[in-house]
């Protein structure tokens, strides 16, 4: 569903991603862990076709994102670290707008329903987004994925800056998305959330995927040790 084959990106002689091979299946949450500059965001941007790979290919549902940019984007929802929406519009209007860009017309009632499914309070859906907290805005992003029935979710530090309760809510939503059959690629610094939410965890350092493990096979403590060991290299 989400596939990187020998994917590399070099910026002005600096390797950001090197020969990445990853295959994330439906119903799987893959968490990329790594320090700042490890290449997590570049990897997500490669899947979004925002940067062109220097080598290899990034594929969504079997399609190379550079050859099928529109078709692959039709299948995915992207939630950046700080999901910015149109502050003058309500949650419903924002959802209607972004769904409309993929050809999905939503009535206000449909949009409200999807927002509520994503955990947003019913009383907030008509409010201007300028009054929303970061956690509420992230929920609009999840509502977008639910409404569009996205096969793929690309998340870049989605829980960064969220309070523990909001972060826990968000993890619950991801699990729901996984159960709906989505393939999720999440870049994060948050080892605890990665262990709790992900199916598999990949550790990146200096653009290289240095270790890949199943979340269920390690304890929180083991994961931390492994991670820190790689970061010291």
């Amino acid at each position: 569903m989400i596939e990187a084959i020998q994917l590399s990106k070099v910026f002005n002689g600096t390797t950001a991603v090197s020969n990445l091979d990853v295959n994330i299946r439906t119903g799987e949450i893959y968490c990329l862990l790594g320090a700042n500059g490890a290449g997590k965001t570049t990897t997500i941007n490669l899947f979004l076709n925002l940067v062109q790979p220097s080598n290899g290919s990034a594929r969504i549902s079997g399609m190379d994102v550079t050859k099928y940019p529109i078709e692959t984007k039709q299948k995915l929802t992207y939630i950046p670290e700080n999901l910015s929406l149109y502050p003058g519009l309500s949650g419903i209007e924002n959802l209607q707008f972004f769904c409309g860009l993929s050809g999905l017309k939503l009535t206000s009632d449909d949009a409200a329903l999807f927002l509520e499914q994503s955990g947003l309070q019913a009383s907030a859906v008509h409010d201007r987004v300028s009054t929303y907290s970061k956690g509420m805005r992230q929920k609009v992003g999840i509502a977008l994925a639910i409404a569009r029935k996205s096969d793929v979710l690309l998340l870049d530090e989605p829980t960064s800056g969220l309070d523990p309760a909001a972060s826990n809510d968000f993890a619950g939503l991801l699990t729901e998305m996984k159960e709906r059959g989505a393939a999720v690629l999440m870049a994060s610094h948050d080892l605890f959330r990665a262990k709790e939410t992900a199916t598999r965890i990949g550790i990146m350092n200096k653009g290289i995927l240095v270790e890949e493990l199943f979340a269920g096979d390690v304890t929180h403590s083991d994961l931390e040790k492994i991670y820190l060991n790689h970061m010291r290299d």
Partner: peptide, 13 residues
């Protein structure tokens, strides 16, 4: 405004 990132991920150029 920060909406560019979300816009660029939409299936429209």
């Amino acid at each position: 405004g920060g909406t560019f990132a979300l816009l660029t991920s939409q299936p429209v150029s």
